[in-house]
Amino acid sequence: MRVNFTVNGRPQEADDVWEGESLLYVLRERLGLPGSKNACEQGECGSCTVRLDGVPVCSCLVAAGQAEGREVVTVEGLADFAKQRTCGDSCGTAGTSLDEARQWAAKGTDSQTGEGTELSPIQQAFIDAGAVQCGFCTPGLLVASDELLERNSNPSDADIREALSGNLCRCTGYEKIMDAVRLAAARQSEGV
């Protein structure tokens, strides 16, 4: 079947979709947006969390056909999404194109890798606080944390833990993730 929906502000079309495919599979394998991760595919880890019409959901449990006509925001679009939220519609959209995403090759990383990339406050906070190790849980945690700070700009520790209780991390022991969310909240309140 064919499925049409909007991802990170861009209309997307996927063809020859098998009816049992998840939104996660379509994003990763058909639209060249592998940022949402495939850790459990049973709604028990949150690595695939995306916003579906604004609501955080596990994209592994959304049938691709259920996304028809709807708006999806993935980690790849999070910086733009956050920017739009701050400055309204005047910002324009970007997002990764299919071609860009598919041109992956093993490239070196250096102190400039990703330099000039505009990050959302929560993305920057995750880097600064040391909340990223292997990074496989990171995309889902970023989408969930961003949504938390959108509706609660000054969450208590218990609020943060509750909001992120659907996102497993195996590397960090969560302490640096707590630090990152606190840091982003503090920067947000300072207007940095």
């Binding site: 990763r28 940022g35 993935t74 980690v75 990703g114």
Partner: peptide, 16 residues
């Protein structure tokens, strides 16, 4: 050094 790639979803894992 891989932090930015990992928070933007561009870091290519083996399943990607």
């Amino acid at each position: 050094p891989d932090g930015t790639l990992k928070v933007t979803g561009e870091f290519a894992y083996s399943s990607d």
